[in-house]
Computed example of a mutant assay.
Amino acid sequence: MTIPADNPYPRTNDRETIYLKNAITDPDIVVGDYTIYNDFVRDPAEFAKNNVLYHYPVNHDRLVIGKFCSIACGAKFLFTSANHTLRSLATYPFPIFFEEWDLEKKNVTEAWDNKGGILVGNDVWIGYEAVILSGVTIGDGAIIGARTVVTGDVPPYTIAGGVPAKPIRRRFDAQTISKLQKLRWWDWPRDAIARQMGAICSGDFDALCAADIPLA
């Protein structure tokens, strides 16, 4: 059975798991096809409100999440405005309170150090209550452990965990990782992915490589 494209719920009678793309209206949040978010505490459709924090338009930061990602309950994406600038002699964010201190409203972004957007690759698994900080890039196929705090980039197909996050191990050897990144199975047409589902789910890398790869 194929789920209709506009249906955010990929599982019958499950209102805790959604196709995240169908719940996003903010143009600065981009989510790829089939990426799922599960939330057993709050409405998963309110992901942008509850999980993408301090994401203010004044910064022009973007959250980009690739295809076929799995995001667990409570994962947070923490953007630049959560920071207080380290250039100041005070930790207090005076520029935010421009009215109180007769400051220029246009200088409000001086209250924090802008580290940029967040980029999550394809087929990434982000564990329960993990926190991803602004300026971070997570590579394709990476796994982020539960309650990990990601402060720096995570290479493709790397398992990372801890506070702050550190690489634990690579999921595959370097040659396999390189071939997977060239295959980019997540960009194949749906029917091609379906035909190779057995190879993908069983970890049969040789069979996947032997498949007819659709042209980009």
Rank of each mutant, 00 (worst) to 15 (best):
L89E: 11
W112F: 15
D14A: 08
I36E: 00
R15A: 11
N51T: 01
S81D: 02
V30R: 01
F97T: 13
H60Y: 05
T35N: 07
G32R: 09
I18F: 01
H84N: 14
N13H: 01
V108I: 14
H55V: 14
D102I: 01
N59F: 11
N50M: 07
R11E: 10
L103P: 00
D39M: 07
K76Q: 08
V52C: 08
E99H: 12
K49T: 06
V30N: 03
H55W: 05
F77A: 09
L89R: 12
T12M: 14
I65A: 09
F97Y: 11
I65M: 09
L78N: 05
F98S: 11
T91F: 04
L103Y: 02
F94M: 15
P8W: 03
V41D: 15
D113S: 14
L78M: 12
R11K: 11
K105F: 10
A23V: 10
Y56M: 06
N13R: 14
I65V: 15
D14Q: 08
R15E: 09
N107V: 08
A82R: 13
Y34V: 00
V30L: 06
E99M: 12
V31Q: 03
I71M: 02
K21Q: 04
D33W: 06
E16M: 13
S70W: 00
P95V: 08
V31Y: 04
K106R: 12
L89T: 15
E104L: 11
R15D: 04
D26A: 12
A72I: 11
V31G: 11
R87H: 13
R11I: 15
R15I: 08
R11A: 11
D26H: 07
T109F: 08
A111M: 07
V41P: 05
D28T: 15
F47N: 00
S70H: 02
N51A: 03
L78P: 03
F68S: 09
Y56V: 08
L78T: 03
V108H: 07
H84E: 10
K49I: 05
A90E: 13
I65N: 09
L103D: 08
T85D: 08
V58G: 05
N22A: 10
A48K: 06
I24M: 06
N107D: 15
D33K: 14
T91E: 07
